[in-house]
Design a protein around this nucleic acid. Sequence first.
DNA 1: CCGGAGGCCTGATGGC
DNA 2: TGCCATCAGGCCTCCG
Length: 287
Amino acid sequence: MPELPEVHTTIESLRKAGIEGLQIKGCYVERENTVGGDREAFACAVQGRYIGSLQRRGKYILIPLLQRQATDVHDNQTVDGICGWLQIHLRMSGRLFLADSHETAYVRAALSLCDGRWLCLYAPRRFARMLYSSDFSGLETRLGVEPLSSGFSPELLGQLAVSCRKPVKSFLLDQHRIAGIGNIYADEALFEASIHPLRAAMSLDQSELQRLHHAIIEVLHRGIGNLGTSLGHGKSNFALPDGKSGENQEDIRIFRRTGLPCLRCGTTVERIIIGQRSTHYCPQCQK
DNA sequence: CCGGAGGCCTGATGGC
DNA sequence: TGCCATCAGGCCTCCG
């Protein structure tokens, strides 16, 4: 389940694999849905473009498409030749990887690169998307603050929460308010902050907001440091572009520990459904 | 404006 | 062993 740390790790891995600066020769699209509906328009938009400096926004992987080869691909600011963006969302079971061809099971779309490799979008459940857009203003209006940016303060968290009547668990999953947190890291952050997931977001006091702010940053940083969480089932498990698994599942404190003792107090971990999402918490520690 | 429910999808899982 | 219903859940759309 790629969330912010998994998307971050995926981008870092692709950078190291050296895809920035390469020219896109063509593409493979299994079904038009994956690229937003028009196979021909997509092919036309990517063909011949150069890959700019990869970026992340929320859970999106952003690939700038350059008109011509950049002298310094890492300096998007001075690259005036950006003629569009690929917005890739891995959703539930998506992965990106490089291969010699696109002919691998569950590869739904792929870009052929000038060095002979293919950048493949793997997605057993076909939820993942690789969309072309001339800009990403559309994304900006849909996505909230980056939780690892300097703009994310306890005060801002409070401002976002004060008008939200939903359970704090649902609040954390709302990408319009905070971008990048998914089911795993939401449960982990609430456990870390000792806050019950059913508490209304607007009911949190100053000290709880401070704890939650700190906990969000901590669990996301921990996830990144551990190269992401590979908690899933087989083909739907998260994996890095090099095929390896992340290691953050070894560091998970509450998610999917239903029936097991709380690592802090020993009380049996419980599971409830909030906003159609399974939610794990310690009834003793989280009030 | 807000929040809840349904749909998209298919592999993994568990009961019989 | 095989069959079948159920589950997983990010995000969008629809509805009240």
